[in-house]
């Protein structure tokens, strides 16, 4: 098995940014923030413009044929980078954990495994690079972190994201009860079982209201859109932002689900 390329100080690692569909369509500022962070960490960042979807919706819906076909597209687009970084736990888990399970042919499987070794979720990558990120970020306020399910349980992100948040000047990290409970998004689940999904996101919002952070952050835009949508519907003042925005120190864009004049 070919090992992932070693981290050579003199040659900045070449990172392929896996933008993810949701960030591309809904919140490009997350991708800009990610690039800023990666460049501050000494990486050379490229964004292949032929990238599309990692195949997660197909994989989770049981359409393995499409998932395999999309996997091949991903390999062809991203294989030549030292690293592939995604600002999403579930997309990174699709590329890193699930793609190798899609293939039975040993050559394809080996290719998928080789690729998987280079894939990182953004915060995991920053932890992997340990201390290289030179970021100017400050945020004075209370921030809670929502553990996305894929990041927490499929990638094992652990305390990494919280430790990164704690490096931000002025930031006070607060915990919400049952922080790693699913928020009820679950991709198509949120529209297939809207009542169950609503009950789940309501529990999440109640826990948030109790903890009363200024900002809820996380590594998963889908979860954040779900929670932000519910918070907004119930008139909550809690803002939702992707962790990349906080780490990059760029909160110029209104929070998720908010209009400019809101804050």
């Amino acid at each position: 098995m070919k090992k992932a390329p070693p981290h050579v100080e003199h040659h900045p690692p070449h990172v392929g940014l896996y933008v993810t569909c949701l960030v591309d369509i809904m919140r490009p500022s997350v991708a800009f923030a990610t690039i800023k962070i990666l460049e501050a960490a000494g990486c050379r960042v490229s964004v292949p413009d032929t990238q599309t979807c990692c195949g997660q919706p197909a994989f989770n819906s049981g359409d393995l044929k499409s998932a395999r076909a999309l996997a091949s597209t991903v390999f062809n687009t991203f294989e030549h980078f030292d690293y592939v970084v995604a600002p999403s736990g579930s997309c990174a888990a699709m590329l890193k954990v699930h793609l190798p399970t899609l293939f039975s042919d040993s050559e394809d499987k080996a290719r998928a495994t080789r690729f998987a070794d280079r894939v990182f979720e953004l915060t995991a990558f920053l932890v992997h690079l340990t201390g290289r990120a030179q970021l100017e970020n400050a945020y004075v306020g209370r921030v809670a972190y929502h553990d996305g399910c894929s990041g927490k349980r499929e990638l094992g992100l652990g305390e990494g994201p919280r430790q990164l948040l704690q490096t931000i000047d002025g930031l006070e990290l607060v915990e919400i009860a049952d922080a790693d409970a699913c928020c009820g998004f679950g991709g198509t689940f949120s529209v297939t079982y809207p009542e169950i999904s609503n009950a789940m996101v309501s529990k999440k919002c109640n826990a948030l209201t109790d903890a009363a952070p200024d900002i809820l952050t996380g590594s998963e835009l889908g979860c954040l859109m779900n929670i932000a949508g519910k918070l907004r519907r119930s008139g909550s003042p809690i803002a939702c932002r992707h962790i990349a925005e906080l780490l990059a120190g760029d909160t110029s864009m209104p929070a998720i689900g908010s209009a400019k004049e809101d804050r």
Binding site: I25, P194, R233
Partner: peptide, 11 residues
């Protein structure tokens, strides 16, 4: 299914 219970954040 989504918007019955929550807002949909804008792009």
């Amino acid at each position: 299914g989504w918007t019955t219970h929550r807002d949909f954040p804008a792009s």
